[in-house]
Design a protein around this nucleic acid. Structure first.
Lengths: 231, 231
DNA sequence: ATCTTGAAAATGTGATCACAAAAATAATTA
DNA sequence: TAATTATTTTTGTGATCACATTTTCAAGAT
């Protein structure tokens, strides 16, 4: 069980063990470095991160509540397999959810916040230029997160993250089989709309960003990809 | 810590202890029988349900990932306090989410499923007639759940349940201070639309059901209610 | 009386252990 | 050789314990 794709992570002190385990597993799943169907064992993970079953089990339970993991009848835990139907369900929900999140953020947007968005977008462009898919993926998420988090009342963000978490494994597969992920960037469009505080335009930009990005996969392409990956 | 409003629940055999604890706490929160601000202790709950800290802690972690509980900096766990802003955020998200869930369910609706909806709606009307708020609440949820679950690909339902979970405590307060909850019933309208497989009409019915139901609380009414409840 | 200090109790956290169920492997039989 | 059974190992689960932090409460000082 040493083959677990779990990169060590920065651990601020005061952070509990279960919290650390949660973040590490979460990130691994989010960028697709744990293959769907691969079964995770509590002891294996505990050993890999030099702790004990108790906090790892707590982390796994949280992740299963977040939709990132599925508990089978055998009580074995794994990253859920992707299907074309599930994918389409996830993408359509993502679109609706993030459009709504964007709208609800607009009234709270500050110039300071827009500057930060520009900055993140620039960093993402650099990551794309140097063909660093994983970094670009994380920076893309960072962009969206920064936008939606302008709204101080955070009830939507956890759900958006849950969607990302569920799409993660598919992105991992896509990155393995497609040399270079095609990144769409409607971010500048979103930023321009934000400057004008135009909710409809912001929502439209987000919708386009999603539907042309991850939503751009054709159904048959997905089925082929999944077949190729032996799912 | 014996004053925990935790009614025992049916426990099918084979159900794990942490799962049982999770369901029991979840239901208590959902119908608003745990007061926001009341701090929950692991040992207290473990004692109340005659088990030990380990599985209870797992249940609490899951519930916090589901948005039902909040972990403070002191690591104490409590039901989040409601605010007028958070309430409005929750209701608007609920509306968007459930309209989408309803639309995605329509293509999968069967006659058998509509019959079941009729049945649940009838049961809810009976509960309302005998002024049993808690039962009516659960049956109302059952109606919505049955509808959305017609869609076999279940990625939306957990999020809808998360919203319900977060609104639960407020409903508990409302039930304490308003003698009788005013139940809106756009269910017949939804059923009629379902028979015609009219997505727009179904979504409209759900939207009305929510906005005239829990969404019908005026902002000032909510603030007064919360002040009254000492929140 | 109010505030401060110190001890005692309560609480969250994580490691460990025992047990039962499941999976994997070895041995046996047809 | 293939299928079946028996044995061993692995794994999930939950109770318990030790430790550190927090909270509570009582005694003392200002």
């Amino acid at each position: 069980m040493g083959n677990l794709a779990l990169e060590p992570l920065d651990r601020p002190d005061g952070m509990t063990t279960h919290e650390y385990a949660h973040r590490r597993l979460r990130q691994a799943i989010m960028v697709g470095s744990i293959r769907p169907g691969e079964s995770l064992t509590i002891r294996g993970i505990a050993e890999a991160m030099e702790s004990s079953p108790t906090p790892v089990r707590e982390a796994l339970r949280r992740l299963s509540s977040e939709g990132a993991l599925r508990v089978l009848d055998n009580r074995r835990i794994m990253v859920p397999r992707m299907t074309a139907d599930r994918f389409s369900e996830l993408v359509s929900l993502r679109s609706v959810l993030e459009q709504h999140a964007a709208r609800r953020a607009v009234p709270h947007i500050t110039e300071r916040c827009i500057d930060r968005l520009e900055e993140v977008d620039r960093a993402q462009d650099e990551a794309i230029a140097r063909k660093d898919n994983a970094a670009a993926l994380l920076l893309n998420q960072e962009f969206h997160r920064t936008l939606y988090s302008a709204n101080p009342e955070q009830v939507i963000m956890p759900m958006v993250e849950s969607i990302w978490l569920q799409l993660g494994p598919f992105l991992g597969i896509a990155m393995e089989h497609v040399a270079q992920l095609y990144f769409v960037d409607r971010h500048q469009e979103a930023i321009a709309a934000l400057r004008k505080r135009d909710e409809d335009a912001v929502a439209a930009a987000i919708k386009a960003d999603i539907s042309e990005g991850i939503g751009g996969f054709e159904r048959t392409a997905i089925e082929n990809l999944l077949r190729l990956a032996g799912q």
